[in-house]
Every structure is written in C-alpha cells, then in structure tokens.
Computed example of a mutant assay.
Amino acid sequence: MTVRVQPDLSRPRRRGPGRAQVVVWQLVGLAVIVGLWWLVTDGLKLYPGYVFPSPRAVWTEISYGLWGTGPQDGKLLSAIGGSLRRVLTGYVAGLVLGGVIGLLMGAWLPLRATLGAYLTGVQSIPSIAFVPFAILFLGLNEKAVLFVVILEAFIPVALAVSGALLNVPPALQVAGRTLGARGVGLTLRVLLPASVPNILTGLRTSWSYAWRALVGAELLIAGVQSLGSQLEVGRNTANVALVLATIIIIGLIGGLFDAVLRAVEGRVRRDYGLEVTQ
C-alpha cells in the first residue's frame, strides 16, 4: 500500500532576500573587489602602474573621458554616444527582422526545418568572424558595424519567437479555434500574446549578442567614435588605465540595459501569473 504524504500548506513559505538586501550584497562585493584591487596596486605595489593601474588611475581616465574640459578630454563620452547610437539602431532593426522571420518559421514547417536549422548553426559562429566579410563586402565603415550587429541581434529573436509559438499550450490553441480564430488570426490573436514571456527572454539574449558584436566590430574598424576605438587607442598608446576604464564602461552599459530588460520580463511574467511576488 502506497501512502501519499500531503505537503504541509500551513507552514509559511520561506521568503527570498529582498531587493534592498541584494543591493547591499552587491555593494559589499564591489567594495571587496575594489579593496583587493587597491591592495594589489597601491598597497603592495605588486605590479607597476603601466602594467596594472590602480583604481585611482582608472578613475582618472574615466573622469577625464566623461566630463573633462581639455582638448583631449571627453573622448569616452562621445565614444559612448556613438556606440549607443549604432547598437540601438542595429538592435531595433534586428528585433523587427527577427520578429518577422520568427513568425514565418513558427507558422510554416518547411521554413522552420530549413532556415531554423541554418540560423542555429550561424548563431554558434563568433560574431568577430563576420567582421572581415562585412569589411570586404560593405567597406571599412559604419555599415560594416551595423551589419554585424543586426546579424547577431536578429537570430536570437527569430529563434525565440519561433520556439515560443510552438510551446504555446495546446489548450489555448483549441480555445482559440473554438472561438473562431484560424490561420493568421490564431497566430496574432492567440499564439503571439501567449508567447510574450518567452519572447522577452529572447530579447535579452539578443541584446547581449548585439552589444558584444558591436564592440568586437568597432575594435577592427577604425576612424569612428566608439568604445571599440577607445580600446584600440589604449592598446596603441600602452595606456592600460584607458583600456580598463573603457572595459568598465562597456560592462556597466551592458549590465544596465540587461537589468532594464530583465525588469520588464519579470513584470510581464508576474502579469501572466508565471511568477509569484513574495
């Protein structure tokens, strides 16, 4: 005889850490990292400044690059503006292109079986591998950068949209058909709205791919105001502090946009009843 043990529903669920507590943990972790960095450089002086600069040297590069008033200052600020303009242009174009292709793949099996497989294979290729082709095909200019960004942005969206449409519960499809939805109407009015939470996950993945592709392409295409060109300037002038300052800014911008998209995704998932607010 099998005895089934019923869960004790009277016991309160264990609450996870609050948002404020998580922020405190993150700030403490940041302080520890900066403290260890200072100890290795200014404290113990294990490395010379031109090999591994101190936090103060990197902060100096950031402050000069963002709000300095000298003739060579403000370069990082203009680089940020140029890179954001390119990545947002390519990202939006990738979302539109990927959304259309994803809808077509989700609705038509032959296209999904062919193009879907090809896109999965192309996604496994590092974005930097497409830069030489983009340069030879479009020239050593901004168009080559946008080509690589759009390519890396639209593939995750197309695959996410196609996969999300296929993973809609059959009960919703039956309910939609019962209410008279057919063909394109069923896709746009039933399947697509039900797929929104999973599609948003693809949008976050698309952003990370596009951002990394942008910086990689900018590294190899000189003559444009960009964060990639700042990395190249730092390398050519042996300015490690500038290189680290640019890397930190790249990480902050990428993390900020990902946090915004993650917040939107969490809100949508709660509205859909996929997550419970503690």
Rank of each mutant, 00 (worst) to 15 (best):
L151P: 09
V122S: 09
P169H: 12
A113I: 09
S83I: 08
L159T: 12
D73A: 12
G90I: 09
L84K: 03
F133G: 03
I80F: 12
A160Y: 02
S127I: 01
A107F: 12
G163N: 08
G163S: 01
L151T: 11
L97C: 05
G90R: 10
L66Y: 01
S124L: 14
R112T: 14
W108M: 04
S162T: 08
G81I: 09
V92C: 08
A93N: 11
L103I: 11
G102C: 04
F154T: 02
A153F: 02
G99F: 13
Q173P: 08
R85P: 02
G98Q: 02
L166W: 05
G94Q: 13
S162C: 13
V174H: 13
K143V: 04
G90D: 05
A164N: 07
G68D: 07
G98W: 03
G68R: 03
A144E: 00
T89Y: 10
A93T: 15
T114H: 13
L77Y: 11
G74C: 12
A171W: 10
L146P: 05
G99E: 05
I155W: 03
L109M: 14
G68A: 07
W108R: 15
R177T: 15
V96H: 05
F133R: 05
P126L: 03
G102T: 05
S162W: 00
N167P: 08
A153M: 05
L103H: 07
V92P: 10
A171M: 14
I125N: 01
V149P: 08
A93R: 12
G98H: 04
L97W: 02
G121D: 06
P169C: 07
Q123R: 14
K75T: 14
L76Y: 06
V161M: 11
I101A: 04
L146S: 07
F154I: 06
G90E: 04
A175T: 11
F137W: 12
M105K: 02
V149D: 06
I155P: 04
G70P: 09
A117N: 14
